[in-house]
Every structure is written in structure tokens, then in C-alpha cells.
Design a protein around this nucleic acid. Structure first.
Lengths: 355, 355
DNA sequence: TTGAAAGCGGTACCAC
DNA sequence: GTGGTACCGCTTTCAA
């Protein structure tokens, strides 16, 4: 039994194909009686307009893709990606678009071509790119395509590709302020690789520096440990920093994973958190609530970022130039938990309770 | 500048459209010289065949979808989903298919219709369904569609929907065996909701019972705590079980999250793990490596499961009936870490080292 | 308000 | 081995 087509519906309902088409796309211009007859026929026959035929005619797919640039570490297996993908899918759907995910294994020309084919073949109307490592050359290439592409969670200063980005810098500033409010005087920092290509890493380091300045603490380079984002490097950082002649009384890690490594090693060394050293992470990964003590951290507004990214893609699809559709920067939220010290929190709770 | 079409390429290369089409789809039947001329013309013009036109003609989209059934808990933000989605996407791509993700917010008729539309409109050729909660009625409906749909990580005994499933039961059997080999004599169990609809929960409980039988330990119902999969319920389980007149010397949790709650509460109560009580989780979530002590757990073969699921979908797309394409059950792996006790491991290491 | 007809960009069959 | 041509199912003028 072959599928119902618009032609069959038309002949069944005793109207022309154009009328059926109008019932679907411009119901208001069809006479009420005709419309109802056609609608009930469509329902009865289980008619669904063929996406390919429609797309061929209208030259749109009503689909957007997320290009996931996978690096060597398989970083995209992180739960962060689950959150982002689902948030994007939900934002796309809210806008009436379907959502495709396409993984790029590296940034080879070949892989870029495959991604481009999706756009060139009109299989998708636009794309959001999510990439931890991102070469300059790749960005240039993407830009040259002149397709509706938006960078997610990336800041691209000069290049005219629209982007969505969270205020990483402010997240660390808030962390410093919180720790300072706890009475901490020597705040260390576990930096990730602050390569130029990982703008998030740079922004966090800048936030650290700016935060110190703002609360009036000196910047001591010895308190900055250059880790590599991994759990293990967080452990190493603990050994390195806490054995300094003048160890920090608090540390901020550029990622929750490093913070957790630090936390674990600190426990092994008999250090109490936050009494001996307060710890703050970054990202609010699920497990941060489950460790002892629960980890203070910074939460990214992923749902809002996804919405903003989809909105930017849609503007590009609608014909807006890449130059017009500039970047969107969204605020982050500091999440106070025990590892960062709770004095401030207690005070504010007391204040709320009118004590 | 409008996009290159097959017609333009044809006239540019001085051949007919059919020949260009053949160069793309049946290169071997075209004369080498013609083929090369056409190919270089295509390249020069940046020609990409229009997906819609091709799909219209061939009635295929070369796309499969993953339907994600989202429950009230937003469980799909779990990193498990990131792994599954990326594994599916990779498996799809290896088979030459693109990959769409479509979230169903609940199991209402409306949501099911939206998912069905994707198939009926020929926007996707088939789908993998991944769902924590899954009503009988939904399964019946899916089945009635007669579309290429495969259930991921679900066991559907009687219903003729192909499925992929991991040997949950054996995972727990292995856990029991490991603990028994450590000398544990009273192994408790933290069950999730063992509803009929969550077959994974049932299988784990069965594995517990079967494991005990196999190693010759008695089944003591008091050692089974009915938790709800959450971190908090794992904590509660610790209080409940460890305050029994005869507390267990080991517990197996049906999820890592519960195991971690147990671990945390145990630490608060001054219990040593694994000396006072050994703990084993289930799923091998990332954070299990990061807690103290690292959590023994059971790892699901997600990549293999994804491959199997895509393979089943493709068989259905190729025309195989749902009845023929039965289920695939894949083996799981017990991961020994410190929380479960390491005596056995030490022995086997010594054995390997020839001691 | 409705219908006829011309595509959209490919594929596939059939002559040549 | 190559070219002509009839579709695939829908949208979109343009007349009636």
C-alpha cells in the first residue's frame, strides 16, 4: 500500500492539487467548506507531505545541524555535550526546525568538506559549530563558505562569524570575590592550557587577574599552576601549590575536573577543605554536587546559549549578513557550595531570615 | 551566483545530464575520458548534488534519527546520553548515513505523531529509540507504524520490535562473584525502581539473585534496599543497611549515582571502604574514577551497542521484517577499582607477573 | 476561490 | 557508452 500523495488526496476530495497545497500552507485563502473536506480527507488517508518534494521546491530543509569538532581526547563524551546537544535540539525545535548532529573527526580538509556538503546539498539550512580545539585556518575556511554558521561557546574577536559565548571572565571574578569575602588572602589558580586557540582558557585566566585587582589582592605568579584540564593535573597542582613556602588558602580551578583532582589529593594529604584551603571549580558538572565537600563552581547558561545560537543561525538563514549578526555574550552564575567556604552564605541566609 | 546543478555541469562538460548522473552514481560504466572531464568540471564548479532532488527521486534520505524519550527528570542530560548519541552518530556515519536527533517530551499521542511524521515525510529512513521510561502503549504504537525502529538499551521480550540490550544481569553476577572472591559474605543490593517498564532495573536485581546463588551465598531480603536511582537514596541506603543488626560487608548499587551516595554517607559515618564495606556501582560514569576510593563498576559496551542498533535499523530499511530482526544482547565488563576490594586483582597481577 | 501547468534537480529506463 | 525523457511530489504563478 503506497503512501498518500497530494494528488491522491486531491482526487479523493474532488479538488485540484493546488487546493490541497493551499489547505496545507495557506488555509485561510481556501473556502471553509472546501478546507474542511480536504482536511478530513488528509486525516483519513494519513497524508503527510513529502519532505523531499517540498524541500526541492522551496529550497529549504527546515533542519539545522550541530557540527561537533571532536578532538583527539574524545572530549565530546563529556556530559557537557549532552546538555548542549539537547539544549540546541530543543531550541531548534521551538523554532520549527529539526536537528542533525554531525561529528567532525579532526579539522582536515576532508572533514570540513563533508560538513560543507551538508550545507551545499541543502540537507541542512544552517549549523552551530561546537569545538574545543579550533584552528585559525578552520575558522577562515568556515567563514569563506558564507553559510549560516554560528560558533557556540567560542569567542572570535575579529572574524566575522557570529558566536555565542558565556562570560567566563566574570565567572572567575565572581569566584575570587566570593573567596575574598570568606577571608581568603592568597588565592591560587589552576589554569588550563591558555593557548590562543582556547579562548575560554584565556578568559578564565584574565578573570583571575581582574578579580584579584578588584578585591585588592596582589597577583603572585607562584600561585598560578599551569595544568592541562585533566583530573590528574589537578592532583599535581595540589602537591605543587600546597608545598610552597607560602601556600595559598584558596584555589580556583579553570575546570571542575581539575578542582576535583585537587580536592582528592588534598584529602589524601590531610588538608581540610575549605578550612585549610578553599576550592572552587568551573562548569557545574553533575558530579560536583556529589563529592565531599560539595564543590563550589560556576554554571554556564547552556539553555540560553543554545537559544541564542539557534536565533543567530535563523537570522543568517533569513538573509542577514554575518557581519550584522554579531556575537552574544551571556552571564554565568557562581554556585556557592561547601568547598568554597560558606561564611558569606551563612551571613546572607541570616540576613534573609532577619537575624 | 546560483548553485551549480547537474544540468549546468552537463552543458559545461558537453555531455548529457544522464552522463553526469552516471559519473556520480555509476562511475564504472562511464568511459574513463568522459568521466574525468565531468569530474573535473564538477570540481571546478563546486557541484554538490541536491539532496532533496535526489531524495525525492530515490525515496530515501540517507538519514537515521535517534528518538530520545525525555522523562520528567530530564535524565537525558546525563553524560551517558552524550556517549550514546555520539556513538550512534559515528555508527550511522560509518554506514553512510547522516544522523538526526529528535527529543520526545513525554509519550503523548501528539509527541508520537511528531516523531512519526519524520518517518512518514521521509525525512529520515529509520530510527533508534532511546528511552528510560517506556509505556506498553507506546511500544505498541511504534510497532504498529511498521517503520524501521530499533530500541536501544531496552529489552522487549514479546513485542516484535528489534532491540539492542546489554547483559545487565551478567554485570551484577560478575560483581557478586568479584565481591565473593574478596571474601565478602553478606552482599547487599541497592535496587532502583524495579518496575516492569524499566527492564534494566529488573535484570540487575535478577543478576543479584543469580549471582548469590552461583557463589553459594544466601539471599537475605533485608539486605536489599529499594532506592530510586538517585544520589540521595544511596545515602539513605547506607544509613538503612549499615545500621542493621547484621550489616552487609559489601553492597552493589544498580547505578553509580546511588553507589556514590552510599560512599559519601559511609565516609561521613567513619566507615572505611572497602575494609568495612566494599562498594560496587553500575555504568562506569566518568566521575567514578575520581572519587575516593575509586569506584568499582560495570561498563556497558556503548560503542558496540550503537553499532548493533544502526545495523538493525539498516536491515529493516533494507526490507527485512521486524520479526526477522530480533534483538542483540551484548556483554558488559566488570571494572575492578579500589572500592570493591582489590585482593583478587592483586593476585591476578601477581599471576601475570609470574609470581 | 479554484484549477492548470510549469518547474525544482535529480534518477532511471530505454533507445540509439 | 551516451543521450532523451518521463517521472518523483510538491509549490507557485497565472487564468478562469
Amino acid at each position: 500500500m503506497s503512501r498518500a500523495t497530494i494528488t491522491k488526496v486531491a482526487s479523493e476530495a474532488g479538488v485540484s492539487r493546488s487546493t490541497v497545497s493551499n489547505v496545507i500552507n495557506n488555509p485561510e485563502i481556501v473556502a471553509a467548506e472546501t478546507r474542511q473536506r480536504v482536511q478530513s480527507t488528509m486525516r483519513r488517508m494519513g497524508f503527510q507531505p513529502n519532505h523531499m518534494a517540498r524541500g526541492l521546491r522551496t529550497a529549504t530543509s527546515k533542519t539545522i545541524a550541530c557540527f561537533v569538532l571532536e578532538d583527539a581526547d574524545n572530549s565530546s563524551t563529556d556530559s557537557y555535550y549532552a546538555l548542549v546537544l539537547l539544549a540546541l535540539s530543543s531550541a531548534a525545535r521551538a523554532a520549527g526546525y529539526d536537528f542533525m548532529i554531525h561529528v567532525l573527526y579532526g579539522q582536515s580538509e576532508d572533514e570540513l568538506l563533508r560538513a560543507r556538503a551538508l550545507l551545499a546539498q541543502r540537507k541542512v539550512d544552517g549549523a552551530v559549530l561546537i569545538a574545543t580545539p579550533l584552528d585559525e585556518a578552520t575558522v577562515q575556511a568556515l567563514r569563506a563558505w558564507q553559510e549560516p554558521i554560528v560558533l557556540f561557546d567560542r569567542h572570535v574577536p575579529d572574524l566575522s562569524l557570529p558566536f555565542v559565548w558565556a562570560d567566563y571572565q566574570d565567572g572567575v571574578v565572581q569566584s575570587v570575590q566570593h573567596l575574598h569575602a570568606q577571608g581568603c588572602q592568597a588565592v591560587g589558580f589552576l589554569a588550563g592550557f591558555p593557548s590562543q586557540l582556547h579562548t575560554g582558557g584565556v578568559a578564565r585566566l584574565e578573570g583571575y587577574q581582574r578579580g584579584l585587582t578588584r578585591v585588592g589582592l596582589p597577583l603572585d605568579p607562584r600561585l598560578i599552576y599551569n595544568a592541562d584540564w585533566s583530573f590528574g593535573s589537578g592532583r599535581d597542582a595540589c602537591d605543587a601549590l600546597m608545598n610552597l613556602p607560602a601556600p595559598p588558602d584558596a584555589v580556583i580551578a579553570a575546570s571542575d575536573r581539575m578542582a576535583l583532582g585537587f580536592l582528592q589529593r588534598a584529602a589524601e594529604c590531610g588538608l581540610r577543605v575549605p578550612e585549610d584551603v578553599a576550592v572552587v571549580g568551573f562548569n557545574d558538572m553533575e558530579f560536583t554536587q556529589y563529592v565531599s565537600p560539595p564543590l563550589s563552581t560556576v554554571r554556564l547558561p547552556i539553555v540560553e546559549m543554545a537559544r541564542a545560537a539557534v536565533a543567530l543561525v535563523l537570522r543568517r538563514i533569513a538573509g542577514e549578513s554575518a557581519a550584522e549578526a554579531h556575537g552574544t555574550i551571556l552571564p554565568v552564575a557562581f554556585i556557592a557550595r561547601r568547598s568554597g567556604g560558606m561564611a558569606e552564605l551563612h551571613r546572607s541566609v541570616q540576613r534573609q531570615e532577619g537575624l
